[in-house]
């Protein structure tokens, strides 16, 4: 079984990350932005696991495990915030939440 090179995984990770970034920057629906952030986290996980294999150590995978746990917490809190905002403003459009401007 000949493995795919680590570089290829990292490149894939970079592509997914960039798609996530562009998603965060262009979409105005807060939930879709949020999902784009999850995509970015996921791409980082992919790179971590690729490095873990390259170094033949489990640490990368353990850190990925932590990232998933933190992401779960983050999603819970973030979605709660979205619900609160929606209650107050009846919208999920982030551009409508712009009263804190200079």
């Amino acid at each position: 079984m000949n493995d795919v090179s680590t570089n290829a995984y990292v490149l894939l990770s970079a592509i997914l990350f960039t798609i996530g970034v562009v998603g965060v920057l262009t979409r105005r629906n807060a939930i879709v932005m949020f999902m784009s952030v999850e995509l970015m986290l996921n791409s980082a996980n992919l790179a971590l696991i690729a490095f873990s294999r390259a170094r033949a150590e489990s640490d990368g995978q353990v850190i990925t495990f932590f990232v998933i746990a933190v992401a779960a917490a983050e999603v819970a809190v973030g979605l709660a915030l979205l619900v609160s905002i929606f209650r107050a403003k009846q919208t999920t459009n982030v551009d409508d939440v712009s009263t804190l401007k200079g």
Binding site: D3, S5, T6, N7, A8, V10, L11, S13, A14, I15, F17, T18, F51, R53, A54, R55, A56
Partner: peptide, 14 residues
């Protein structure tokens, strides 16, 4: 990112 993936990292494949 592509540059980093192919030039930036120097890791041997196990």
């Amino acid at each position: 990112g592509g540059f980093v993936a192919y030039r930036g990292i120097r890791l041997p494949d196990m």
